[in-house]
Simulated assay, not measured.
Amino acid sequence: MIHYDLICDKGHAFDGWFRNSSAYDEQADRGLVSCTQCGSVKVEKQLMAPGIPAKSNRKSDSATKMVAAPADPRLAELMNMMREMRKHVEENAEYVGDRFADEARKIHYEESEQRGIYGQTTADEAKALVEEGITVHALPRLPEDGN
């Protein structure tokens, strides 16, 4: 599975999970990748920072944590939109932690009350949920999350 941050021609940011980069390209070429807000099929991959694991023998010093702001005003606006979206989810949905996949299935199969939830799951579990027809979206990772 590969995760892409995507953006439509109207500036709406969202993300998607694909089997591999070729699967994204094929789906985008066929008009199957569309914006979650406006439905536009004019979608492009956004620039993404790679996740580089820290050395395990390194001392962590939270006082040196730094965040750089994007120079492009459109990127700054996009970052603010992502922060607002994430804040909205956190204020209006139930945090279920690592029980996310189980709770999503219970809601989908009407074994639990309909409600918004958020939490953590593995890429394999996210893929399995999508294959079962359960709609899931990853919350955007923000620079202050420390990747």
Rank of each mutant, 00 (worst) to 15 (best):
A76C: 04
E94P: 01
R99S: 15
N92V: 12
M82R: 10
A69Y: 05
M79T: 02
F100I: 04
R99K: 15
E84S: 11
E90T: 13
M85K: 11
Y95K: 10
T64K: 03
A69H: 01
H88L: 06
N80L: 07
A69M: 11
E90F: 12
E84I: 14
F100S: 01
E77M: 09
Y95P: 01
M82Y: 03
A101H: 09
A76M: 13
E90K: 09
E77R: 12
L78A: 14
F100D: 06
L75R: 06
A71W: 00
A69T: 11
T64W: 03
H88Y: 15
G97Y: 07
E91D: 15
N92T: 15
R83W: 10
E77F: 06
D98H: 05
P70G: 00
E94A: 11
K65G: 05
K65T: 11
L78Y: 02
E94R: 05
H88P: 06
E77T: 09
D102R: 02
L75I: 06
N92F: 08
A71G: 09
K87C: 08
D72P: 05
P73V: 12
E90Y: 06
V89R: 01
L75S: 01
D72S: 02
K65F: 11
T64P: 02
V96M: 01
M66E: 05
P73A: 04
N92Q: 14
M81L: 10
M79W: 15
A93G: 01
M82T: 07
M66H: 05
E77W: 07
H88E: 13
M66P: 00
R99G: 10
N80K: 08
T64H: 04
E84W: 06
M82S: 13
M82G: 13
M85Y: 14
A63Y: 00
F100A: 00
A76L: 10
P70V: 00
A76S: 13
N92D: 07
D98V: 07
K65C: 04
E94I: 09
M82L: 15
A93L: 08
V89K: 07
D102C: 04
A69Q: 15
M66A: 04
V89T: 14
H88V: 03
V67K: 00
A69K: 10
D72Y: 03
A93S: 10
E91F: 09
P70F: 07
E77L: 09
P73L: 12
D98W: 03
R86S: 13
R86I: 05
L75M: 03
A63G: 07
Y95I: 07
M66S: 05
F100P: 00
R86F: 07
E91H: 14
A71L: 09
L75T: 02
L78W: 09
K87P: 06
E84F: 05
D72Q: 04
K87I: 10
T64N: 04
V67R: 00
D98E: 12
H88R: 11
G97D: 12
A71C: 04
D102K: 04
A71I: 04
T64S: 12
F100H: 00
M81G: 14
F100R: 02
A68D: 04
N80S: 15
L78S: 13
M82V: 08
V89H: 05
L75E: 03
R86E: 10
A71P: 00
D102F: 02
A93M: 10
E77A: 08
R86Q: 12
R86H: 06
V67N: 01
N80I: 01
L75A: 03
E90V: 13
